[in-house]
Design a protein around this nucleic acid. Sequence first.
DNA 1: CCATAACGATTAAATGTCAAACTATTTTTT
DNA 2: AAAAAATAGTTTGACATTTAATCGTTATGG
Lengths: 145, 145
Amino acid sequence: MKQDATSKLALNTYTKLMRGAESVTVRVGRKMSDAGLTISQFGVLEALLHKGPMCQRDVASKILKSTGNITLVIDNLEKQGLVQRERSLEDRRYCTVLLTEKGRGLIEATFAEVEAAIVAEMGVLTDAEQETLGKLCKKLGLREG
Amino acid sequence: MKQDATSKLALNTYTKLMRGAESVTVRVGRKMSDAGLTISQFGVLEALLHKGPMCQRDVASKILKSTGNITLVIDNLEKQGLVQRERSLEDRRYCTVLLTEKGRGLIEATFAEVEAAIVAEMGVLTDAEQETLGKLCKKLGLREG
DNA sequence: CCATAACGATTAAATGTCAAACTATTTTTT
DNA sequence: AAAAAATAGTTTGACATTTAATCGTTATGG
């Protein structure tokens, strides 16, 4: 294939990937904002729900954000009474972050909504297409950063 | 397929799509920040380079951002002398945004870098795989928002 | 013609984002 | 054990982003 055609195909694919991911993100994100949560806040609560209490560093790596950012997100969640910080006794550098009852209730309900939205979004693809999409996206993610 | 398996596949596909798109974005975005541009700034300059001068509303829809946002992004580009605003004479509500010489030089050089990065990213997929990925992503983007 | 609606741009407030500098604490080295 | 390095978290500064409110301009229906 000529160099120019290669570039064209790559740019085209890139654009479609970005637009597709973006529009899914926007529509799924609406379920989160309906619940009064930002995407980051949802990510933090979801991690705590499914993985249990963890320190901020682990939260950050779980949702692929910087630790400086996590501090703020957790600040805001704490203000709303959705999570709680506990300074570790063994190693006082660590904060363990855990869900409050209120936080657990909210994320359980919201997660169900979001899950349904994701299933609906992906429902435009057959199972086989989803498998294929997953494999291709995984390949793209594997390169070194 | 059982409902549970359907959900699991959808969630799995969703996660891979998000991670794949995110990691490509980060790596390609690095070329932009190397040039001192944010992703949005790059998007604005790129639109102006390839589509010619346009009003802010068109810029906004081109890069899928709100008009309030565009005002700020263009403010910052203008401060750096990369673009220029011109209030339209026929209809004074419109601002035409156009590239300066400096802006044109920067975006031409940066676009080449970014294009190369995109080609490299997509290069992990065969041409056929890229076609497939493009089609699947397009399907995902088509739903009503 | 004039009141009002529509429209483009701007501004403001809230949140998020990263990078870099900084603090507190623990571990490692010497 | 003291000094140095590493680690977790916080703070700060610059930019981004959205939504909603506002300003100025243009179009439209009575």
